[in-house]
Write a protein that binds this DNA or RNA. Structure first.
Length: 290
DNA sequence: TTGCAGGGGTCAA
DNA sequence: TTGACCCCTGCA
């Protein structure tokens, strides 16, 4: 899945199979990675600022030690999962998936921090990606902590930082009515500090039930949290794009969300969420069903 | 310049 | 099942 090639001048070169940062960072699963004109990607993993360059086969992590790579990147980039095998299984199912997998061949599903994913996708509702990114960066710059590695960006603010912030201050990030949801959700987690870690130990169905009990979290966001934090790869978030692509490619007619969810679980199986990601990226790029 | 529609949804009636 | 919700952006 990966192999460390060299470590020179503090730069770590790693061979990574089935990867392409463009696909992985722009398929809609994360909001804090950006590329500069020279093709260097910058992002924040927990409290570490990360810069990387991809050359088509190997990924060079700038100013990173081998232990930092082990501690921060292996899990985050899901490097111990064989995406080649998953893609081959999905591609066998039908021509649609084959095309979708071919198109987004370098997508790896990240295993992002549970709290960050929860708040990020709470913000994503009824919103567009550029604005979601702005709100999140604003939230981080106001309530986050400095990151390691000499970066201007801040960490994603933890539970206490958001729980202690008055709603007036949260509104600085221009999240609109979503700020009320953030405030209430942070208050719930703030009351029980063990909640954040304990909830993640439950079976996915229980986690989902809990997420749905939080203010501002519906089925779609709950499934995003489960999928993108790596807690359940069979979670199948259905937004307007996924609904459209499934209707266009499989049902050939308008279909309700519950039927689509049922179909996804039966047809795509344990890796339904990963299939969803290839299809979502494919649908958006090819404007399928628009 | 102004107005309007719509955006990786959710909630309440 | 339907409209309101914050705010921003793109487009007439």
């Amino acid at each position: 899945m990966f192999r460390i090639v060299s470590s020179q001048n503090n730069n770590l070169e790693v061979e990574i199979n089935d990867f392409n940062p463009h696909h992985t960072f722009l398929c809609g699963q994360c909001f804090r990675w950006n590329a500069d004109k020279g093709g260097i990607w910058t992002g924040i993993i927990s409290d570490l600022g990360v810069r990387l360059i991809w050359n088509g086969r190997t990924c060079t992590f700038l100013n990173m030690s081998e232990s930092e790579f082990t501690d921060y990147c292996v899990r985050y980039f899901d490097l111990e999962t064989d995406y080649g095998k998953i893609k081959a299984e999905l591609a066998k199912k039908d021509e649609n998936l084959k095309a979708a997998v071919f198109h987004g061949y370098g997508i790896r599903l990240l295993r992002q921090d549970f709290w960050e994913t929860l708040i990020s996708f709470l913000i994503s509702q009824n919103n567009n990606i550029p604005r979601i990114k702005k709100i999140i960066e604003s939230l981080c710059s106001h309530f986050g902590l400095p990151v390691r590695g000499g970066f201007s960006q801040k960490t994603f603010p933890g539970v206490p930082a958001l729980a202690n912030a008055p709603l007036d201050e949260l509104n600085i990030c221009r999240g609109g009515y979503r700020c009320r949801y953030i405030s209430k959700t942070a208050a719930i987690f703030g009351q029980t500090p063990s909640l954040e870690s304990n909830i993640q130990k439950l079976p996915p169905a229980e986690i989902r039930k809990f997420l749905l009990s939080l203010p501002g979290i519906g089925e779609k966001v709950a499934d995003c949290v489960l999928l993108y934090s790596g807690l359940d790869r069979s979670a199948f978030p259905i937004d307007r794009w996924v609904k459209r692509v499934i209707e266009t490619l499989y049902f050939k007619r308008e279909t309700d969300v519950n039927s689509i969810r049922e179909f996804a679980r039966d047809y795509f199986g344990d890796n339904a969420g990963i299939a969803q990601q290839y299809l979502f990226y494919y649908a958006r790029e090819q404007k399928i069903g628009v």
